[in-house]
Design a protein around this nucleic acid. Structure first.
Length: 340
DNA sequence: AATGGACTCAACCGCGGTAGC
DNA sequence: TGCTACCGCGGTTGAGTCCAT
């Protein structure tokens, strides 16, 4: 991490140049003075047009830079410090559902930014998963040759074991040894609005996953199965999962955007009532940030804001342990954590 | 103590979506 | 319909820090 004082040492030249240039916008690290200006402006005026923010706050920065600084660093509700094991589990779980949609993952981790999660994933989790996948028997060398494929396989498998949604029933003749699963393409671009599923054949799942293969859903004779997700997944905006075909067919997770607010709120309310949870979802004043539009309004990841009548928007009380409570024990993650 | 590679993370870049004209 | 400005997102970069040798 860069120290503030290094800024002046490293950037004094460009700083001077830009300041002397007058209209030229500054780039690079932010000085404490700039932070103060932006912070004061935002606290006094709130978020508006970012180019106006840059101008009115007296900053020689582009609006984009101001936005980034505010979202990733200055926002008062940001949680600093290392990720907790629960957060880590949640990130893995959500990534298996959402892929590289960091903003949507961040929206479900209070106080964390998409950038932070992305960095954490790329620097830490990805590495561990790589180690893990390289140390477990390779299902099929030709099918899993790429790191991405391994990552997809492992994270998808983790989610499967975690939530039980890939649980298999022996009456279908499905075992972890011959199942095929559709996995999320973590390399999809941001323009992809619907979930893209890659077909990854898994001939042999890591042994620990077998522990997670408890049946959680009802199968039907036509091979179509439907199951409701765990509350944790509902919170992630996934209310149901469809299996079509004989498990060798489609494994469909509804894209978040396709799930109505009403459904999500209803689901969350049910969850709240059933579990006597104190989640913001059940609060009628809660700003539902699982909706794509609201996600963006809240500013990429402030997933914990709510507002009472006549009140300022304030931080609610997401409890990460609550979030994770209904995630069945992750056999995978027990194994995984040994790599931490 | 020096050094070089690995790691971390703030910030930038480029793209796509959207709204307003 | 096309243009422009703006916003938000994911990918990438680059520089400081850490750590093993």
């Amino acid at each position: 991490m860069r120290k503030p004082d290094l800024y002046t040492a490293k950037n004094s030249n460009s700083n001077n140049n830009n300041n002397n240039g007058g209209s030229k916008l500054r780039k690079g690290l932010w000085s404490p003075e700039e932070d103060d200006k932006l912070m004061n402006y935002m606290l006094n005026n709130g978020q508006g047009c970012w180019s106006d923010v840059a101008r009115n706050a007296g900053l020689q920065r582009c609006g984009k830079s101001c936005r980034l600084r505010w979202i990733n660093y200055l926002r008062p509700d940001l949680k600093r410090g290392a990720f907790s094991p629960q957060e880590e589990e949640l990130i893995i779980h959500l990534h298996s559902l959402l892929g590289n949609r960091w903003s949507q993952i961040a929206a479900r981790l209070p106080g964390r930014t998409d950038n932070e999660i992305k960095n954490f994933w790329n620097s830490t989790i990805k590495k561990r998963l790589k180690n893990l996948s390289s140390s477990t028997p390779s299902p099929n060398a030709s099918d899993s040759s790429s790191d991405q494929a391994k990552e997809n396989m492992v994270t998808g498998a983790a989610a499967a074991g975690a939530s039980g949604f890939m649980s298999m029933h022996h009456q279908h003749g499905i075992t972890s040894n011959n199942m095929s699963m559709y996995n999320m393409d973590t390399s999809t671009s941001s323009s992809s609005s619907s979930m893209v599923l890659n077909h990854v054949m898994i001939d042999t799942l890591p042994p620990m996953l077998e522990h997670g293969m408890n049946m959680m859903m009802g199968g039907t004779s036509n091979g179509h199965a439907h199951m409701n997700t765990t509350p944790c997944m509902s919170q992630a905006g996934v209310n149901s999962i469809e299996f079509n075909g004989n498990f060798g067919g489609e494994f469909y997770v509804p894209p978040l955007e396709s799930i109505s607010i009403e459904e999500k709120v209803k689901s969350a309310e049910n969850y709240s009532n059933d579990q006597n949870r104190n989640l913001s979802y059940s609060n009628p004043n809660f700003i539902n940030n699982t909706d794509k539009a609201d996600d963006e309004n809240i500013g990429s990841g402030v997933g914990n804001l709510w507002q009472g009548p006549g009140e300022e928007i304030k931080l609610g009380e997401w409890n990460l342990e609550d979030l994770m409570k209904d995630v069945p024990s992750f056999p995978f993650l027990d194994f995984y954590s040994s790599w931490s």
